[in-house]
Design a protein around this nucleic acid. Sequence first.
RNA 1: GUCUCGGUAGCUCAGCUGGAUAGAGCAACGGCCUUCUAAGCCGUAGGUCCUGGGUUCGAAUCCCAGCCGGGAUACCA
Length: 616
Amino acid sequence: MTNNDENQISLSLKFQRKKMSIELIIRDQIVEAIDKCYHQQIDSTLVQLQNTRKEFEGDITLVVFPFVRMSKKSPEMTAAEIGDFLQQNVSEVEKYNVVKGFLNLVISSDYWVSVLNSASSNSNYGITQPTETSKLVMVEYSSPNTNKPLHLGHIRNNLLGFSLSEILKANGNKVVKTNIVNDRGIHICKSMYAWKMWGNGQTPESTGIKGDHLVGNFYVRFDQEYKKEIATLIEQGETKENAEQNAPSMLGAREMLLKWEAKDPEIIELWSTMNGWVYAGFDVTYKELGVDFDKIYYESETYLYGKDEVLRGLAEGIFYQKEDSSVWADLTAEGLDQKILLRSDGTSVYMTQDIGTARERFQDYPINQMIYVVGNEQNYHFQVLSILLDKLGFEFGKGLHHFSYGMVELPQGKMKSREGTVVDADDLMAEMIEVSRKTSEELGKLEGYSPEQAAQTYRMIALGALKYFMLKVDPKKNMLFNPEESIDFNGNTGPFIQYTYARIRSVLRKAADRKIELNRTIKITSEIAPKELQLIKIISQFPVAVKEAGENYSPALAANYIYELVKEFNQFYHEFPMLIEENVEVRNLRLVIAESVGKTIKTGMKLLGIDVPERM
RNA sequence: GUCUCGGUAGCUCAGCUGGAUAGAGCAACGGCCUUCUAAGCCGUAGGUCCUGGGUUCGAAUCCCAGCCGGGAUACCA
C-alpha cells in the first residue's frame, strides 16, 4: 500500500466521521469506553440511546443499567465514568449529568449549528437520490373493480400506495407504481346485465352521471333485483340455495360471463363500452386525489397467463386434479389447506390471475422487490400466492411483500358497496373542498388571490386534511371514520401543518421585502435559546425519520415526525420574534431555522403526497 | 374449530426492538389578537394502558392463559 493510498483512506474515514450522526459517534465511543474502563467487548446494540426527556438537562441519554453488571459499581458511578470518558474523547460532548441510572449528555451548540448549516444549504435534505444501481421496487396499489366507484376504503389504499412509493423513492429506491384493474369476472357481468335489462340505453352523457357512478348504480340495481327474485322463488317453494343459484338475473350474468370468455362480439362491445365509462370516471377521481401509475395491468389480459402457469404446474406434478377436473394445490406441508386454482369448468379464480400478473411484471421489469398494497382481509391470499409462485419456480415468490393495511370502518361497521353503505370518494372530496372554501372565506386570508388561485388553495387544504387524516394512523390498524363528525381542520391535522408552512413563507416574504439577506453559514457567538436548539435537533432527525418510514413501510411515522416538528415550531413562533429582532445575528439564526423548518415540512409532506400552500 | 390482527383519557389516535412522572388532537372549561397569519399559543380537568399470572433491577411494551372485537379459513373477487 502506498502512502498515497493511506492518505486516501484516512481522508475518507475523516469524512465519514464528519458525516456520521452524533448518535453513531457516541455509540461507538461508548463501546470503547466499556472496553477501556471495564475490559469488556460489547455489541453496539447493547448501547441504548434515547432523546433526553424534557425535564432533564441534556440532548442524548444513555441507559447505563446494562453495564452495571460489568462495572460492578453503582449505576451512578458507572454513568459518571462513562460520562468522563465521553467528555474527554468526543469533542461534541460538552458536559454530562447523571440522574439515577441515566447518563444525560449535553451536546455542544457548535455541533447543532453545524447541523443547521448543512440542513439549510442542502436542497435535498433528508432525501437519498436513487442511482443506476439502486433497487427497483414495484408497488401495486389501488386495484379497483370496474363495477363501482371508489370509496373511502380505496382512498386509504391509494393514499398509502402513493405515499409508500414516495417514501421508498426518498430512500434511494427506483419505484414503479402499478395498478391491476380487475376488469373481468362475474361481478362485472352483474352491472352489465342490469344495464342491459333496466338501463334504457342510459349513458354518462345522457344522464350527466359520472361513468363509474352510473355503472355502480347498476351494480346496486342488480343486487336489488336479484334479492327480489330470490324472495319470489322461495315463496314459490324453492330452497334458498336453489333460489340463489337459479334466479333469472344470476343466470343472465353467468351466461354473459361465458359469452365474454367466448369473445362474443356483442358482449365484448358492451363490456368495453361500460368499462370505458368507468375508466373515464376513475381518471377524474385519481386526478383529484393526486395519485398516478407508471404501468397499468388488466386482469382481462393477465388471467390467461395465470391459467397457463397453473396448467404447467399440473403437468409438472406441482398441483393435482380432482375427478371433477378442478385443479388444486396441496399446501398442508406448509401448514395451510388445499387451495383451488381452476374451477371444475376450467375457469380461473382470483389466485390464477395474480399468478399471471406476477409473471408478466417480472418479465416486463427487472424487479428487485414487489410490494402489494392490499387490505389485511387478504393476508391469507398473499401467504398462499407467495408459496405458489415459489413452487412454480419463480425465485421472486418468497420475497414478495404484502403491505397489509387495516379496514376503514364506519360507526355501524364495514362498508358494503352492494348495500350502499359506503362513503363515496368523489362526494367526500367535494364536501371537504366545500368546508375548506367556507372556512377560508370566513377567515378572509386569500384576499388578492384570483378565483383560480383561491380555488386551488381550497383544494390543497381539503386534500391535505383528508390525506393526513388517513395517513397519520398506523397502516396496519383498522381505523374509524365517522361521517357525522367531518374531518377536522384544527389540531393534529394536515391544515395545521399547511398553515404553519404558510406562516413561515409569509415571514420569509416579509424578510425579503425588508431586504434582509439570509446568511446560511451561521457562526454563533452568543448563546442559543433552548427552544431554538430544540428545533434544530428535530430538524436533524428528519433523515432518520425518512429512513424509519421507509424501513417500516409507514407513512404514519413520517406524519408523526412532521407533526412534532410543526408543533414545536408554532411554540417557537409564538415566543420568538424574527423580523423584529434587533440583534442581527439572532435574527438571522431564527430566520434560517424557520426556513429550514419550512423546507422540511414541504419535503416531509411530499412524502405523504400533500402539497403545501404559500398562503392560507 | 383453526389461524391472524387489535383492545391505551368521553371520542379518534401516538407510544410497543423493555427504561425516568404514559403523550397528542377533538370535545369541556378558563386565558391570549394595536407587534412576523388566532386554521395559532398558554392553562385546567380527564387513565384499572382489557383481566390474571410470569420473566426482569425495571413491563403499556416481552412470554403464557383468559375475556371482548375485526378479518381469513377448499370452486366470490
